[in-house]
Design a protein around this nucleic acid. Structure first.
Length: 264
DNA sequence: AACGTGTGCAACCGCGTCGGA
DNA sequence: TTCCGACGCGGTTGCACACGT
């Protein structure tokens, strides 16, 4: 049996709020407060609205301390940093941004910030400076919803000359298969021998940032000191090894990373 | 001008949690 | 301890507007 609805949906107004309704709600709350009961508030305020709708309208729009308008770079950084640590806990993230609501932050993340980060990631790819001719062929790596972290699952054995860029937060060592560095300044490596389809790295502390991208491409045997151009192949995080730690938060990151890559 | 598509954001929905009876 | 109403949250939807063809 489902939960009983909080109000009679057939007999309450829905959709956008009119200026009159806004005024009525604002006037009532400023005069009487919410009274700790949103369900009875609309009746008392003379509004034919669901209590939840009133609560949302007040918290997300009518509250006097709401900050409207664009987000600043500083706010961007706070959101990115907190999302990296907390995932999609918008209310917690919004609590660090005075005047911003969880709905605001969520919408901003979903519509703008995610794409902004993708654009930065693309710039990082270009900075890797590989330019094979014929162009790089990129490995398609299907997303898998479970498990995650501490390992990239390529679904199929890696072939020689696949290029893997690693996240900056991880050390370039002990990947569990032979590789060579592309250059001292680069964060990429090249697979020299076939691998078993998994790349393990030594970090067991879950130190993967959602700003970190794992990019894979095939060099077609060309020299690595050329420009990298073409499609990005998203990788999923996988955890076939029992001694690797994985968390729900990492699953979210992996999922979001995949989704954001598919936007490009 | 008309139409299709993309974007931003307000609002809704459903579920988990909390607290009082 | 259990039940139930209300709250709060995150995911999703739908609409208005902008923009391109």
């Amino acid at each position: 049996m489902g939960r009983a609805p909080c109000c009679d949906k057939a007999n309450v107004k829905r959709g956008p709020w009119s200026p009159d309704e806004d005024a009525a709600l604002k006037t009532y709350i400023q005069k009487h407060g919410t009274g700790g009961n949103w369900i009875t508030l609309p009746h008392k305020a003379g509004l034919n609205r669901c209590g939840k709708s009133c609560r949302l309208r007040w918290l997300n729009y009518l509250r006097p301390d709401i900050k409207h308008g664009g987000f600043t770079d500083e706010e961007d950084n706070i959101i990115c940093s907190l999302y990296d640590r907390l995932g999609s806990r918008w209310s917690v993230i919004a609590s660090h941004l005075p005047g911003r609501t969880d709905n605001d932050v969520k919408n901003y993340w979903n519509t703008k910030l995610k794409r902004k980060l993708m654009s930065r990631a693309q710039q990082r790819v270009n900075l890797l400076q590989y330019s094979p001719s014929p162009p790089v062929q990129f490995l398609t790596v299907p997303f898998k919803s479970e498990p995650f972290n501490s390992c990239i699952d390529f679904s199929a054995p890696l072939q020689p000359n696949y290029v893997l860029s690693q996240p900056s937060s991880l050390m370039q060592q002990d990947f569990g298969f032979p590789f060579k560095e592309t250059s001292a300044a680069s964060s990429s490596i090249i697979v020299e021998n076939n691998s078993d389809g998994y790349i393990n790295w030594p970090s067991t502390n879950g130190a993967i940032s959602s700003n970190d991208l794992f990019l894979v491409g095939l060099l077609n045997g060309h020299d690595c000191h050329e420009d990298l151009a073409g499609e990005i192949a998203p990788c999923c995080f996988s955890n076939p090894s029992a001694n690797m730690r994985s968390t729900a938060s990492d699953q979210t990151k992996s999922h979001d990373l995949h989704r954001s890559l598919t936007y490009s």
